[in-house]
Design a binder for these strands. Structure first.
Lengths: 199, 199
DNA sequence: GCCGAAACGTAGACATTGTCTACACATCGT
DNA sequence: ACGATGTGTAGACAATGTCTACGTTTCGGC
């Protein structure tokens, strides 16, 4: 149960939560986990492999958190899509360390099967929500993959810049959901409100 | 003229253009520049300081490139804003190495005056274009700093994900300007077309 | 139960990195 | 002319990722 492999992953997550990527080395993780500096290589072929496992876990956690938030809403695809965007940014800002790791390909092993699966699952989640929204007529003329990519880029850009404090003070003091509110105007502004055509 | 300082910066830029951040070490830069491994520290207090100088230069280059593209257009603030967004993404995709460096605070020296100046100048450029567009009535009710931040996050997210190949194939094969076209719909969709009210 | 093999863990190498220090040479203002 | 300052080199130092050699521990088939 508390196998070394799990301890290593826990130590990595703890370090990410505490100090982020700063000082996150294989030997430091080993020290935190209470094992020798060579022990991690018995469970992961490299530092990248260990970080990929952690990144995959973080992707899964984020996907679940988003799913929970979306599930609370009724069957309103556009509202669900917006809520997913907010939940995405909320997760990133609440877990900046793991989030940064997820989008640092040079630290990860891109061929890691679990990382690939988890990242694709996250994308598929957004793609499905986008498709549902488009099915209601909202932006049905925009190519699906293109729209999904742009929406992802939007929330990713907000999360990234906010985490690294790159947004100037005036923007930074706003609630992150406030940023998304602008997207909401975008999203809801164009064709018709989705559930009004049903009542 | 061909002082060691300039040679070091050139070598760094060349490395960024050729291999990106991969293998970009102080000693490798020194080897490329044909000096000893300790020489760079005579001109820069640390690796971060050298990288900050290069990042500042890249920011300035990008700002100029955007300004050129915008200046070609007539006095149509909304069209200028859109063109700036396209020029931003174009620069990032044409110079992925320098662009990645610009947004890697842990590699840079945040207190570097020139880096700060150059990054603020880039932000101010976008802020001005945004303000001009808002002055025509476009989204004049959205707080200026908030809108600027969201626009920046949008293009930054697109550029970042595209550079690291994180967007799936269907999205990736599109012309990057195609991605922005979706933003164009957003931007132009809401109130009124800006120049029609003039003719 | 035994025992060989596999898994697991440790300790010590090795090359490489950023930075520091000691030293040498040049350049230049006075 | 000469001391100070600037510039370059070479050698240290600690730290890192990974490799190898060497012990344990564990465990499945006889």
């Amino acid at each position: 149960m508390n196998g070394t492999r799990e301890v290593l992953i826990s130590a990595t997550v703890a370090h990410l939560d505490g100090r982020g990527l700063d000082g996150l080395t294989l030997r430091q993780i080993a020290r935190d986990a209470g094992v020798s500096h060579g022990a991690p290589l018995r469970h992961f072929t490299s530092l990248s492999a260990l970080l990929s496992a952690v990144a995959a876990e973080s992707f899964d956690t984020m996907t679940e958190a988003i799913q929970l938030r979306v599930a609370r809403l009724g069957d309103n695809p556009l509202a669900q899509l917006l809520e997913a965007g907010r939940a995405y940014v909320d997760y990133a800002l609440a877990n900046p360390g793991p989030y940064e790791l997820m989008f640092r390909p040079e630290l990860l092993d891109r061929s890691d099967a679990d990382y690939f699966r988890a990242s694709v699952a996250a994308y598929e989640q957004l793609a499905t929500l986008t498709a549902n929204a488009q099915a209601t007529g909202w932006r049905s003329d925009t190519p699906h993959a293109l729209l999904t990519g742009v929406l992802w880029a939007g929330v990713h850009g907000i999360a990234s810049l906010q985490i690294q404090g790159a947004l100037p003070a005036a923007t930074n003091t706003h609630d992150p959901s406030g940023l998304l509110a602008v997207f909401q105007i975008d999203l809801a502004g164009l064709p018709a409100a989705p559930d009004r055509s049903n009542s």
